[in-house]
Design a binder for these strands. Structure first.
Length: 468
DNA sequence: GAGGTATCCTC
DNA sequence: TGAGGATACCT
C-alpha cells in the first residue's frame, strides 16, 4: 500500500489482509491460539517494526480506528469468549519525514514499544523507510487477575507502493509483441518506475528463461526501457511460440505481472528477395506483353526512364554485379547464400547497399567511389537520351539535400551542371542513388568525431567535381 | 541530471 | 474518502 505523509491529511488508507484478492478484500485479523478457558480479556497492541530481523521499532506510524491520536500505534481489547478473532479495519500507515525520524523513534521508546527488545542496536541511517511489518503483541488478563504476555508475532512485509526500490513492478506496454526466434528485436517498453541498476527483463516459457538485452543507459527516466529480445530457446521452430515477459527486480527477485510476446519461426526470405524477384518478374512479363502489343516503342526519354527503372537499377552498364551480369573491376563477392538473389536486391535500399558492400569486403564509400569511377556508369549519368534533365542548366537545385553541391555549381560558373546534377539525382530515387550520394557528402552535422582520412576518404565529391 | 522526498491536486 | 498522478524541491 501507499504510505501517506501527515501533511496529506485525511486517512492513510486501509491495510488489507494477506489473503485479500482484487475482488475480495479482507482485513488483517488475529486470533488467540490455545486454551482460552481462563482468559478474561485480551489486549492487542499493534505497532510497526522493521522488515528484517531483529524487528526493531519502525518510526512510521499506524493511524486510523483504535489508534490514539499521535500515538502511532493501535490498541484494542476484546473478550476472546465472545469474539475469538479480531479484525483491524481502517488501519493506515503514515510515514514520517526523514528529519522527524529520530523524534518518532524516541516517542516509541517512551511508549515502551519495543516488542523484540532490540534497543538501539542499529543506526537509523540503515532504516528502510519503504517497508514495514505489523507487530502484534497480545496481553492476556486472566479471570484470577493474573496477567500474561504472549510472544509478539509479525505480519508479512508491507511495501510502500510509491517507492521504486520496493514498489510493485508493472509493464504498461510493449511497442512490439512479435519477433523472430533469433532474437535481437528492438522493443520499447513502458513501465512503472524502476531502478535502472536493479532491473531485468525476463522472457520465460516453462523452465526456459532468457534476458532482454539492454544497458542502464537504455532505461529512460525510470519509466521506459529500450531493449532487444533474447533468442528463443529453440531456433528451429515452425510455428509461433508465445512466451511471457516480466520485469524482475534483481535485489528481491520480485517479478511483475507478465505480458505476452510471440516468437516467430525463422524468416526464409529475410531480405524479401523472393518477393522482390517475383515483383520484378511480374513487371518484366507485363513489359514484354506491352512491347509485343505495340510497335511504336522508342528510345525517347520518357520511355527510356521507364525502362531504366525496370532494368538498369540492377545492372549498371559495365558495373559488375554478383550474378555475373556485368564486367568485373571489383572483387568477386564473398560467399553469399544467394548471390543471384543479391543482384536482384542490392540497390533496393541502404541496408541492401550495405549488404552488397559487405559482401565485397568494401565500405559503402569505397563501393560508391568505385561505382562513380566506372566509365559506363558515368556515361549513363550524362547520357541525355537516358535523362536529359541531368544536363539542364536551368534546373533549380533542390532544397536542402545537396547543399555542398550547390556550392560547387556556383564555383563552376554559370549555374552550371552541378546544381542540376544534384537535383536530378532524385530522378534515380528508385535506384537509391540519391541516397547513396547524399550519404557520401561531407555533412558536418552527420559526421562523427573521427571522419575517414586518407586517399579513399571523400573520394566521391573530389573525383566527380574534377571529372565533371 | 537522476533519483528520492514531500506535498499538492484530481478523479 | 480512497487512490493515484503531478510536481516542486532536495540530495
Amino acid at each position: 500500500m501507499r504510505f501517506r505523509y501527515e501533511c496529506e491529511g485525511r486517512s492513510a488508507g486501509s491495510i488489507l489482509g494477506a489473503s485479500s484478492t482484487a475482488t475480495t478484500k479482507v482485513q488483517p485479523a488475529v486470533q488467540i491460539q490455545g486454551s482460552i478457558d481462563k482468559v478474561k480479556k485480551v489486549t492487542v497492541t499493534v505497532s510497526l517494526v522493521t522488515k528484517d530481523i531483529p524487528y526493531r521499532p519502525h518510526p512510521h506510524c499506524l493511524v486510523g480506528k483504535d489508534c490514539p491520536e499521535g500515538s502511532g500505534i493501535c490498541m484494542v481489547s476484546f473478550n476472546p469468549h465472545t469474539c475469538p478473532q479480531h479484525s483491524f479495519a481502517n488501519l493506515g500507515i503514515q510515514c514520517v519525514r526523514r528529519k522527524e525520524l529520530d523524534a518518532s523513534l524516541q516517542k516509541r521508546r517512551s511508549q515502551n514499544i519495543d516488542p523484540f527488545i532490540t534497543g538501539q542496536s542499529k543506526s537509523i541511517e540503515d532504516m528502510d523507510m519503504n517497508v514495514v511489518r505489523l507487530c502484534f503483541q497480545g496481553d492476556l488478563e486472566m479471570e484470577d487477575g493474573r496477567k500474561e504476555s504472549l510472544s509478539p508475532v509479525v505480519s508479512n512485509p508491507i511495501y510502500d507502493k510509491k517507492a521504486t526500490t520496493t514498489s510493485q513492478l508493472k509493464i504498461t506496454c510493449l511497442n512490439v509483441n512479435k519477433g523472430p526466434c533469433s532474437g535481437m528485436t528492438e522493443i520499447y517498453m513502458l513501465c512503472d518506475k524502476v531502478q535502472k541498476d536493479d532491473i531485468e527483463i525476463i522472457f520465460r516459457c516453462g523452465a526456459w528463461e532468457g534476458k532482454g538485452e539492454f544497458a542502464q543507459t537504455d532505461v529512460h527516466r525510470q519509466i521506459a526501457i529500450v531493449f532487444k529480445t533474447p533468442p528463443y530457446r529453440d531456433q528451429d521452430i515452425s510455428e509461433e511460440f508465445p512466451v511471457d515477459v516480466v520485469l524482475r527486480r534483481v535485489s528481491d527477485r520480485m517479478d511483475s505481472e507478465p505480458v505476452r510476446f510471440t516468437y516467430l519461426p525463422p524468416n526464409p526470405d529475410p531480405y524479401e528477395v523472393k518477393r522482390k524477384r517475383k515483383i520484378k518478374n511480374d513487371i518484366s512479363m507485363a513489359e514484354q506483353s506491352c512491347a509485343a502489343g505495340s510497335s511504336s516503342s522508342s528510345s525517347s526519354s520518357s520511355h527510356s526512364t521507364a525502362a531504366m527503372e525496370l532494368s538498369s537499377p540492377y545492372t549498371f552498364p559495365g558495373f559488375p554485379v554478383p550474378d555475373g551480369v556485368g564486367g568485373g573491376e571489383l572483387p568477386a563477392p564473398a560467399a553469399h547464400p544467394d548471390p543471384s538473389a543479391l543482384g536482384d536486391t542490392a540497390y533496393g535500399d541502404h541496408q541492401d547497399m550495405d549488404l552488397l558492400a559487405k559482401s565485397w569486403g568494401l565500405t559503402d564509400e569505397e563501393l560508391l567511389s568505385q561505382l562513380l569511377e566506372t566509365p559506363n556508369f558515368q556515361a549513363l549519368l550524362y547520357d541525355p537520351g537516358l535523362n536529359p534533365a541531368l544536363l539542364d542548366p536551368d534546373a533549380a537545385p533542390p532544397p536542402g539535400n545537396y547543399g555542398n553541391m550547390e556550392g560547387m555549381s556556383n564555383n563552376g560558373g554559370g549555374g552550371g551542371g552541378f546544381g542540376a546534377y544534384g537535383q536530378d539525382f532524385t530522378q534515380y530515387s528508385d535506384l537509391s542513388f540519391s541516397h547513396m550520394v547524399s550519404e557520401s557528402q561531407p555533412d558536418p552535422a552527420a559526421q562523427g568525431p573521427d571522419p575517414p582520412q586518407g586517399p579513399g576518404a571523400r573520394q566521391v565529391e573530389v573525383k566527380t567535381e574534377v571529372d565533371l
